[in-house]
Amino acid sequence: MRILLVEDTADVAEAIVTHLNRIGHTVEWESNGAHASRRLSESYDLLILDVMLPQQDGFSLLQQLRTRGHHTPVLMLTACAEVEERVRALDLGADDYLVKPFDFRELDARIRVLLRRSGGESTNLLHCANLSIDRKSRSATLDGQPIELTRREVTLLEIIAARPGRIFNKDELMDRLFTVDDNPSANSVEQYVARLRKKLAAAAFEIRTLRGLGYQLVLHAPAEPGAGAGTAAHTSPLH
């Protein structure tokens, strides 16, 4: 998922970025509140905001985000454990609050909760036809059998499998899969989609390329009694 981290302590920020990148998230980092303010109009799956920042603090950034009508999940970070500060952040529209120092396992768990809540999920398991994705272990199974996927393949699959039928354009997927430092080429997304198609040949869905539009995960229609192979596909979730 695409995450914006706003944290002015370099060693803390670098540790968070390294950790989250390792488990498959795409993380962009700003150390200055005023600079982060200019990026609030961009699309992120999650914002992690430190409270104490140069030029513009985390509370101000949070208030600015909510005033603009953005519903992006926000996790606040602070070294202060005072109840009043936590209450203020929650009242301004924060979704969760984490006090430094923290264990990365707790950070991961809180991120998973916020991401699945924003996606309407109640557990870490994402199901799409005969595919299951475990957000905690960053793994996937097809008909109960493990699939060998890279962290970026899991992320791409998670993005499109969470929204069957939705069309994702290439630029959006590039933004959510790569950072500027990754220097992705124009066909990077195509390469990852091609790899997924090979690994998901037995899936009860297909990843379609819509020329000029992007990519769409389309579920196969259930076979009718007596019907042969090659049934049509549809875009509504299977139940």
Rank of each mutant, 00 (worst) to 15 (best):
M1N: 11
I3T: 10
V6S: 04
D8L: 05
A10W: 14
V12I: 15
A13N: 02
A15L: 12
V17M: 07
H25R: 09
V27L: 14
A34Q: 14
A34F: 09
E42W: 05
L47Q: 01
V51L: 12
M52V: 12
L53C: 00
Q55M: 13
F59A: 06
L61W: 01
T67M: 07
G69T: 12
T72C: 08
A81G: 06
R88F: 06
R88P: 01
L92Y: 05
L98K: 10
V99K: 02
V99P: 00
K100D: 01
F102C: 05
D103H: 11
E106M: 15
D108S: 11
R110D: 06
R112L: 10
G119A: 15
N124T: 14
L126I: 13
L126Q: 15
S132N: 10
R135K: 11
S139C: 05
L142M: 04
P146T: 12
R152P: 05
T155P: 10
L156P: 00
I160W: 00
I160T: 02
R163K: 15
P164G: 05
M174P: 00
M174Q: 12
L177E: 04
D181S: 14
N183I: 08
R197M: 03
K198F: 07
K198W: 05
A202D: 15
A202N: 13
H220I: 04
A223G: 03
A223D: 13
G226I: 03
G230R: 04
H234G: 08
H234C: 12
